[in-house]
Amino acid sequence: MRFCLFVSTLLLWALGCRAQGVGPNQQFFPVHDFRNDWLVYDQTYKSYVPFIDEQHAQVNSLSFFLDAESNRRYYLLISTRQTGYLFIDAALKRRLNASEWLVLNLDSLYRAYRKPELFLTIHGSPGVEDKQVFIGHLKSAAQKEVAAAETRLSILPRRSSAYPNFFTLSLLFIAALNAYLFNFHHRAFIRFFDLTDLLSITDRDELFLVNRPLGLINLLFLLNLSFITAYLYMIVQSKNIDLFLSRALLLRGPGLFDLILTFFELSGLAFLLFVAKYVFIAVIGGLYRLEQVVNLHFFKAIQSSLIFFTAGAILVAIISANTPANATWSSTWLMVPFVSFYVLRLALLYVVIANKGVVKNLYLFSYLCIVELIPLTIGVRFAL
């Protein structure tokens, strides 16, 4: 009897809260209350721990994790009795006026950060009694929304992630593929990864490579380049650098299986783009009557990309292994070496093709601008 009375009281309380609503003018139905989700930074353990009244009553900064992806179409409601400040991913976003509600559209937050989970901190008066944080559903459309802007600064507590396991497995997979190519296609492997051959302006016209751009051996090395490209791309994504807004298109989930599926999708897309590039330069070469240099151009482009991206994958793997998992990389660190590589490759292609002495400089310059320089310029413009 007492149990039934307790359950009935609890249900009536829940229904009363739902009918009453939360937020400014009680315009929102409560979906989730963060009263039990507060975290504080513990200097002893060097990590975030759950808030305990007896131990953390005087702590001024309280934090919590927000699942922005699962709660889209809802609103985040924040109110404090005293003036405070809201930080999102350790970046100051808003001043919290005393006894006023701040309403954030979770769709706006998700579009701004392109992350499934955000880390929020409220700095102000100590304790949690004067703080109210809810996820709410709007009763009416009268409430004005506050859209959050993107930030580059991110200092987050360590969270368990499938990325380290994924990067280890994918790196082993790429290493195994290169071992296979080295053992079963040794001559081609040595040619592709020969830096001296890459920088040589004399044409070693080997039929099994240069004159068969879409032959089986070249396609295998092209597939290898596609896997390396996808590996680097996902490392960039894990560091919160969202190229071409692709996170919204390819973000399946944080699980290991989801990351593996995304890796193979990106590899397949990169492979198709490399093949499409050969078709593109073949068409443009035909227009400029440069059919005799199209295959050499494509081979040199793939050879240089293999050397650069393989070295980049090794370097990035070493840096990632020796830096904190939550460290955010600057997009400048990414753009400068890649743009420099493509500009130097453009100069190399010009010298190698001009050395054949079969084309006027004006035609060659126009040809390389269309197939190399213009795509690079457009890519840099829309990458970030």
Score class of each variant (00 low, 15 high):
257 F>D: 14
260 I>G: 08
261 L>G: 06
262 T>H: 00
263 F>E: 04
266 L>C: 03
268 G>A: 01
270 A>N: 02
270 A>K: 02
271 F>S: 13
276 A>T: 07
278 Y>P: 09
279 V>S: 05
280 F>W: 05
280 F>R: 11
281 I>M: 06
281 I>Q: 01
283 V>N: 07
283 V>E: 08
284 I>G: 06
286 G>T: 03
286 G>F: 04
289 R>T: 08
289 R>V: 06
290 L>I: 02
291 E>T: 02
292 Q>G: 07
293 V>C: 00
294 V>M: 13
296 L>P: 08
296 L>R: 09
297 H>Y: 08
299 F>G: 09
299 F>V: 08
299 F>N: 04
303 Q>H: 03
303 Q>R: 01
305 S>H: 02
306 L>C: 04
306 L>A: 11
308 F>M: 11
308 F>G: 05
309 F>N: 08
311 A>F: 10
311 A>D: 03
313 A>I: 10
313 A>R: 09
314 I>L: 15
314 I>T: 06
314 I>E: 09
320 S>D: 12
321 A>W: 14
322 N>M: 10
322 N>Q: 14
327 A>S: 12
328 T>F: 10
328 T>W: 03
329 W>A: 15
329 W>M: 14
331 S>I: 14
332 T>G: 02
332 T>V: 05
334 L>K: 14
335 M>H: 13
335 M>D: 00
336 V>F: 06
337 P>I: 13
337 P>G: 14
338 F>N: 13
339 V>K: 13
339 V>H: 05
340 S>K: 01
342 Y>K: 15
342 Y>M: 14
343 V>W: 00
344 L>G: 01
344 L>T: 01
344 L>E: 09
345 R>K: 06
345 R>I: 04
345 R>H: 00
350 Y>E: 01
350 Y>A: 15
351 V>E: 13
353 I>P: 09
354 A>R: 15
354 A>G: 03
354 A>Y: 13
